[in-house]
């Protein structure tokens, strides 16, 4: 199971990477994409809206199932990864890089500290 060290994780299997200027990138983990199977599309109707931590920012539809996507932190949803429109399978193939889902302008960057690090997330998966 691929769990990069430099990211933070939620119990719902989202990851977040803090970029510059209070912007963060959010996606789902390798474990999550494996559980979902063939991803058919990703929707984020919350683009241009402020969404609080723990609230749903969108949905991911796979062939076998559909799942809500949850905000790891509070903030404005700036954009949905445009590549996913035509190639949603990027989430399966490269969940941490090309398969990222949204960019967020964080309203309280300190929320990131409350998330799991790679070590804790791995432990959660194992338990």
């Amino acid at each position: 199971m691929n769990v990069p060290e430099n990211l933070k994780y939620t119990k719902d299997h989202e990851w977040i990477r803090v970029e510059e200027d209070g912007i963060a990138t959010v996606g789902i983990t390798d474990f999550a994409q494996g559980e979902l199977g063939d991803i058919v599309f990703v929707e984020a109707e919350t683009v241009d809206n402020m969404v609080f931590v723990g609230e749903s920012f969108g949905t991911v539809e796979a062939v076998k199932t559909v799942s809500d996507l949850f905000m790891p932190v509070s903030g404005d949803v700036l954009e949905l990864n445009p590549e996913l429109e035509d190639t949603p399978e990027l989430v399966n193939q490269d969940p941490y890089e090309k398969g990222w889902m949204i960019k967020v302008k964080m309203s309280d960057p300190s929320e990131v500290d409350k998330l799991m690090d790679a070590e804790s997330y791995k432990k959660m998966l194992e338990s």
Binding site: G37, D38, V63, K64, E89, N92
Partner: peptide, 8 residues
């Protein structure tokens, strides 16, 4: 087996 590679 549900799948071996991907359903698609």
């Amino acid at each position: 087996p549900l799948q071996f590679t991907t359903i698609k």
